[in-house]
Design a protein around this nucleic acid. Sequence first.
RNA 1: GGCGACGUGGCCGAGUGGUUAGGCAAGGGUCUGCAAAACCCUCUACCCGGGUUCGAUUCCCGGCGUCGCCUCCA
Length: 468
Amino acid sequence: MKIYNTLGRKLQPFTPRDEGKVGMYVCGATVQSKPHLGHGRYAVVFDVVRRYFTYLGYDVMYVRNITDVDDKIIDAANDAGVSTQDIADEAAAAFAAAYLALGVLPADIEPRATEHIPQMIDMIEMLIQGGHAYESGGDVYFAVRDFPGYGKLSGRNIDELQSGARVEVGDVKRDPLDFAVWKKAKPGEPSWSSPWGEGRPGWHIECSAMSHEYLGTSFDIHGGGNDLIFPHHENEIAQAEAALDAAPFARFWMHNGMMTLTGEKMAKSTGHIIDLLEAVEKYPGLAVRLFYLRTHYRKPLDFSEDALADATASLERLWSFRRRQPGPVEAESHPETIAAFRAAMEDDIDVAGGLAALFDAVREGNRRLDAGESAEEYLAAYDEIVEVFGLAEQEKGLDDIAGGLAAVGARFGVDGISNGALIDALLARRAEARSNKDWATGDAIRDGLAELGIFVEDGADGSAWHRR
RNA sequence: GGCGACGUGGCCGAGUGGUUAGGCAAGGGUCUGCAAAACCCUCUACCCGGGUUCGAUUCCCGGCGUCGCCUCCA
């Protein structure tokens, strides 16, 4: 399996640190506000990476953090007159709902920054002891120039950065490039006790400390959006490698491309965004997932309503194939399909190529079913691939439309039963009408169900329904 | 200014030195009471200019264009 490693900027064969195991750390959200469409992308992209490693038989430890203390969370809390914890909890709940809708599996561990302050303080103390950081008026700064490898991830050199660095007011820093690993508390801010007084951690230290806590030194894969390469990931590396005196901090760095909107990057700071929860309300969550997955993870992805509608239709094509023969299949997966799927995935997670293999199998499977032949091995391949992509159709349940169903049932003289049994009875009623060429009644039943999102399709051996 | 990515058919979007990606949409057909789904057929592209090559969309050079990072950001 080849993965494009940002560290070194080239495709590299993936090998795990420990035989049979993969440790992954992905930078999750700063929970300051609701998620937008861009946040869904990293979640889905790395969910598929994780699923694929699991599929290959690795024992995967997947860690995705939550940043629940930072300047903007504090600002939001002050504006709303609530605690930072309230802001963080509310936003974290919105992210969790979005992940669920997108079919993103829960992380093995979802550490919060505020619950790992001691680990961060430990790391900062190691930095100070090693001469890599210094205290200055209650703040602690990392001394960038004293760390030789600085810039190796982002491809920058210190002198170029120097010329572009913002001029700092005052002289708390020894060097303009130095960045805070600990910030002295200001009045009204959440703070923790430390050897340097009350304060809070800098942004980057949490990921260095938490990834080390759960995955150890030189873990396998560190992921995140490519906008985090500099300075966040560069600083994570510097801190962790300096503190622990061990390199590399992470062995493979994977970065997903940004979502754009009318060609411009989607970012909450500019308000140039599409609300993620609104998107998964308007379209099936897994259609949004497929929309992300069609484009290679490192490329930019432009949002459009058309693209989402396109993905929705495309997903329907997949699902309608699987509905033709529901239930488990016994056969081995079609070998060529799996080979094509794997070849694509081994090439830096080429999901688009894997999808092509899937759609080829769907076409052939459909063709065989039309011809009255067995499509078992194609159905098996479908299940195998769809599991990795996380696109399997979920049972929706009928409880939320039970009232509507009962009303339709009453209209056609069916009562005393509900939900699935009611639909079956209605379809029996409809079959009876159709056998008498009473098309009006038949169509009325179909239309009544359609209004509730229950779509009826007539086949050679009876009618089937599904909820959309 | 520095670093980096990208420019493919109506749209989205893979990939490759010579042989059909795939999806959506569109048109024609089969099936069908209608509808839906499915299958078959059609639509054959690779920003521009040089170069290398028997042959380049695919490699090299130059140009044009778009975007990202360089400040918080997935």
